[in-house]
Design a binder for these strands. Structure first.
Lengths: 147, 147
DNA sequence: TCCATATAAATGCAAGTGCATCTATATGGG
DNA sequence: CCCATATAGATGCACTTGCATTTATATGGA
């Protein structure tokens, strides 16, 4: 192929294809590992971690939402499921009657740690085992530019 | 934070977070651009491109499936929708009575090109405008290692 | 030939997602 | 104080996805 390409942005498309595939491959590994361990999906982990970090005071849904880049209704329904599973609890906010305060329960903390064990192992095999140590920083720096 | 971390694989987790965010950001830009142009979602593009490449002879679903990394039922239903939209047609295979041959229609080719115009512009602003030209090759090489 | 097993594709059902809208409360200007 | 507007969060509905299973055909060995 020595001819000049007649279609612009071929390079960007190639980057996007690699980005998509890498993402899918890693995500599948993590989700499959969690599923095999009969643990909740990855999305639950992120919320549980966020709530765990917020501590005993809990937090407002809209704060969590902003940090996790989820749509408003998405978080609302995720919390609904997490509450049904007894991993979080919601109660009316005292200062703002429109809102709720969200808390992680003891059971939620426990399951988050169980998930982390699996998650960590999956990351090790999906990332550490594939990428040389010297590759992580450059990769992160390049990915950060896309945001 | 001068203490040694007590949790292993923190580096891999950071890479994964960046990878997820970069992926989400780019994907949202592309999907939003397509939506704004009242065109079908990105997933349709990939199939249409694949079928377009297969040419007049068409192709079998399981072949396309392997290349696109979709679950079997996912492709089956995607093709169902694409057929309903008149962008592809399916007919019984002559050699293998279990299977179907899949073809892209003229309308399918047309819409794929319309999508490409939008897709290309979105890639330009999401990738070319963010990443220096010298960053693409290294990024692709690093991402390729994760597969 | 017959049957056990494998493969291609479709599908019923439950669960998740996107979009638009709704309810309830807050807030600032007149 | 009242109202228009903004904000927090929930929800009805249509569509999509995941999982398991089904249907139809193929294939290799007894």
């Amino acid at each position: 192929m020595t001819q000049k390409r007649d279609t612009a942005n071929y390079g960007a498309a190639e980057v996007w294809v690699q980005l998509s595939r890498a993402h899918m491959v890693v995500q599948n590994k993590i989700e499959n590992a969690l599923k095999a361990a009969k643990l909740p999906p990855l999305a639950w982990y992120d919320i549980l971690l966020e709530l765990d970090r917020l501590g005993a005071g809990g937090g407002r849904a809209y704060e969590v939402q902003a940090r996790l880049l989820l749509p408003q209704y998405g978080l609302s329904r995720l919390l609904e499921r997490l509450e049904k599973a007894r991993y979080v609890s919601r109660k009316k906010s005292a200062e703002d009657g429109r809102g709720k305060l969200i808390f992680i329960t003891a059971e939620g903390k426990k399951v988050r740690l169980e998930m982390w064990e699996i998650y960590r192992a999956a990351l090790r095999s999906a990332i550490d085992d594939k990428l040389p140590e010297t590759g992580k920083k450059p990769l992160m720096a390049l990915l950060a530019q896309l945001q």
